[in-house]
Nucleic acid binder design. Structure first.
Ligand SMILES: [Mn+2]
Ligand SMILES: [Mn+2]
Ligand SMILES: [Mn+2]
Ligand SMILES: [Mn+2]
Lengths: 232, 232
DNA sequence: GATCTTATTTAGACCTATCTAAACATATAT
DNA sequence: ATATATGTTTAGATAGGTCTAAATAAGATC
């Protein structure tokens, strides 16, 4: 029936999907290499394989784009990831800053049965931590993200944090995965889903200054663009 | 520090440990091949690698024996396995016949942190499903198995089922892993931890006939030797 | 103890995922 | 339009885990 995708391939497909969310069009070799933490030639050879298996359409020097099958796999893994994260927080007392790496491994190794049971225990949620939408069980739909980015707001506005992204575009325009320490720091200064912040000013270089009950905090552009909020 | 053991190596070490429990002395290439579901040459080459890494002592044509390091890894994986099985049953409503395969995969992929949280949720138990002893967190001790084997009892005795082994020595003297259907069948005829059976007779070839509220059931030697009980 | 049988190892191959160094293509700047 | 810089692919190598076919060692039988 469906071609088999190894764990590693699943990660490539998931990351192609995630990069593509940020960055419409084809996904480049170097963006993927950065995200996957491997060399560019490694990516090239993998893209060829993924293309042969029909998961993606790959054009030399142009980049990769998911096909229907590849997207289904990406959504499947993303669903696992977000369900696992939420489960670990709600049922095993993890802090939201600690679950990402655990989920990044387990996402490839839970059975469909365990996925169902975890989803069920959580009440079959449509959103995971920080409002990240969870693909539906049949992998046909994924809730739309209704939020805006903190970095797009202007001085004086008050917003509610909805979501702190795990993956974002870093300072050199390279995608990266935020690590626990970074998430922890943001938590410490009160950048936590559900909490409010006021935009104090937007300084040069897109630096943004926000305030909350923990005081005033300056965030660089890349960071403020990775925090999703809702205006009130 | 410690040499790295891949997932596959972890399974070899775990299975060397388990075979050795049944069968004192060195573990043979063919027993391991059977248990792992791979060819004999594959095992030979893996035993050489495990020897080079210091996990086992391997002598050509004589078989393998775990070293301290290899045993620690085996116990670690076994601990994960048994904690996961019990967690799935107690917290996610799995039936005890369904969890083995799930645990066989997940045992390699949970972090030490998740292991601790799972153990904690279960009250840091010393025994898993069917009374299978769980190695301690520091991997130095494992509770002793106080049970006897159903197949060692005589007609007239009444025993309580303590444990239905997942791994046992099959009819051709080859170790095998019991599958869900088999566990399910045993469950259906009332061979379930905690339940009593009376030994009705011991027939030729070690065939044993037992009775309980579900009626009379005949079990072949290999099966009766894989069911641990306590006399009352 | 010579012979037959069975267990084990050796040899040689393949597939996956990765790397570095070198070649080449595309995009940018002068 | 040419030169330069950057991004991408090709080439060739390595390591892990597996296989089948063939050689060889150990164990069992007579
Ligand atoms: Mn992953
Ligand atoms: Mn799934
Ligand atoms: Mn396993
Ligand atoms: Mn552990």
């Amino acid at each position: 029936m469906r071609e088999h995708a190894s764990d590693v391939m699943q990660d490539y497909l998931k990351n192609i999907y995630l990069i593509n969310r940020e960055n419409e069009g084809q996904v480049s070799t170097s963006d993927l290499a950065m995200k996957m933490g491997v060399s560019a030639p490694t990516v090239t050879s993998m893209l060829v394989k993924l293309g042969d298996k029909g998961f993606i359409t790959y054009e030399k020097y142009k980049g990769a784009k998911l096909n229907t099958e590849g997207e289904a796999i990406a959504l499947e893994i993303l669903r696992h990831h977000r369900l696992i994260e939420r489960y670990l927080v709600e049922f095993l007392g993890y802090d939201w800053s600690e679950v990402h790496e655990e989920a990044d491994v387990l996402e490839h190794h839970i059975s469909e049965e365990l996925e169902r049971r975890i989803a069920n225990a959580l009440g079959n949620p449509k959103y995971g931590l920080y409002g990240a939408p969870i693909p539906s069980e049949d992998l046909t739909s994924i809730a739309k993200d209704e939020t805006t980015k903190l970095g797009e707001h202007s001085a004086g506005e008050i917003v509610v944090i909805e979501r702190v992204k795990e993956n974002y575009i870093g300072s050199e325009n390279a995608p990266r995965t935020r690590d626990s320490e970074e998430l922890q720091y943001l938590a410490e200064i009160g950048i936590i889903p559900g909490k409010q912040v006021k935009i104090e000013s937007v300084a040069p270089f897109g630096m943004i200054k926000v305030s909350n009950e923990k005081g005033e905090h300056s965030l660089p552009k890349e960071v403020s663009m990775s925090i999703h909020v809702r205006e009130i």
